[in-house]
Design a protein around this nucleic acid. Structure first.
Lengths: 237, 237
DNA sequence: AGCTGTTTAAAACAATCGTTTAAATTGAGG
DNA sequence: CCTCAATTTAAACGATTGTTTTAAACAGCT
């Protein structure tokens, strides 16, 4: 009997083989992984079919069972590889600058670049978005590894920007305001496509313009901290 | 032969029957409609099964084919009823006030109330969110009827708030910033649940606090319009 | 070559989907 | 009671899903 080789999560970089790691390997396993990402992103985990993945990969249907155990095993590996690739492609900007304004600008830029990129790797963001709405068992670890670091960095940067002391939850609200504005250009993309005419959209909705706008909004909010303080309910008592 | 009675979209209010319209009718058609909404919201259009809908409704599987033609016909009717119900429950605040600050506050409040409500009708928002990520053929009409009016009202309110003249696209960006901040507390809700401890979340993440914060951010941005102007690229030419 | 463990191929599996069919039931009018 | 149309029922249909099975092809070794 041939044991299946799907022990655990495995890096796609075969460290000691002759083929250069950056070169796209062409064995069955790699071809499945390359095909699975976009299909999972386009159809969702449930909607994606093993048959379509294997068809676009040009391999047999039984291969996914052999290499990854089952559909969920393949999905786990796709997410695993995705996180590795993202960490290398979008390194978090360092925060040790003395100019928090520039750190904020860089963070917003990174966030938007990750989110609204129309590159070949657009399926990665689509997949993460689907995880947020339809969490699979992997969701929590994704949040801790991907979202938490950026969220913490954002909160600390904002703490430097407001010159007075603010309670933690207000800084968190500010961080969510920043993330929310960025994320909307992905979440609401299909709605924006209906609301804003094509021509206008192509002129003013590039990453550069959007990140500049969002940064300006947040800087304005930070400079007016007085408005952010909860006004105590002025009830008659 | 018994012709199927699924001519076109039909209002759930039977205008001339003895039963009071507000009273929940108990015929097969109504029971299917009441059961379908939450199921569609929880599983998505594709994920929802006619069998589960009919099972929770306590009716036969063939009933949906008889009363609505097919699954999509049922979905259309669910969306139709949803829009009617929302229009009555969340009337858009009137904008003829002379105090645009209060209009903005009211708009944000309405938006957040629609979005993060945990009421019995939470499935309605869930369904609209799913339409934004996985649009069905009905999506465009939803945007025009539901999103466009609120978006226009928001843009005009912001135009009154910035005291100088700004180009249209900047006002649109401001409107999207507002909507984006609100929407994030739904889109990112599952992520927030992981990022923020339960206790802190229950204290500072009610509709009141959030809408006050978002309104403050946007007012600060409007009062600092100078930062919103695109700084022309200071290239040498 | 010949053997052995690994990988792929094609087909079949049971389960579940949306939809359809044909008979049973209901209820009102004659 | 009979008739007839509207509605509900139970069963089945064909299609598609994830997964498994069985045999064939391949690669590495002595």
């Amino acid at each position: 009997m041939a044991d299946s080789p799907h022990n655990s999560l495995q890096s796609p970089l075969s460290p000691h083989l002759g083929v250069r790691p950056n070169e796209r390997s062409n064995d069955t396993r790699s071809r499945i992984l390359r095909a699975a990402g976009p299909v999972f992103a386009a159809r969702g985990y449930d909607g994606a079919t093993v048959r379509e993945i294997c068809s676009t990969a040009g391999v047999n249907i039984a291969s996914v069972g052999y290499h990854f155990g089952d559909k969920l095993g393949l999905y786990r590996q796709v997410i695993h590889d995705l996180r590795m690739a993202r960490a290398k492609r979008f390194p978090a900007p360092n925060t040790d600058l003395e100019k928090p304004e520039e750190t904020l600008q860089a963070l917003v830029n990174t966030l938007l670049a990750r989110i609204v990129t129309a590159e070949e790797s657009a399926w990665e963001t689509e997949l993460l978005m689907r995880e947020m709405q339809n969490p699979t068992p992997i969701f929590e670890s994704i949040v801790e590894d991907v979202f938490r670091p950026l969220f913490d960095q954002l909160t600390e940067t904002l703490r430097l920007l407001v010159h007075s002391e603010l309670p933690d939850h207000t800084l968190q609200h500010l961080a969510f305001s920043t993330v929310g504005q960025c994320l909307y250009y992905r979440v609401g993309a299909k709605a924006i496509q209906v609301l804003i005419p094509d021509q206008q959209r192509q002129m003013h909705y590039d990453i550069e313009s959007l990140s500049q706008h969002i940064t300006a909004v947040m800087l304005a909010a930070c400079n007016n901290v007085s408005m952010l303080q909860q006004r105590p309910e002025t009830s008659g008592s």
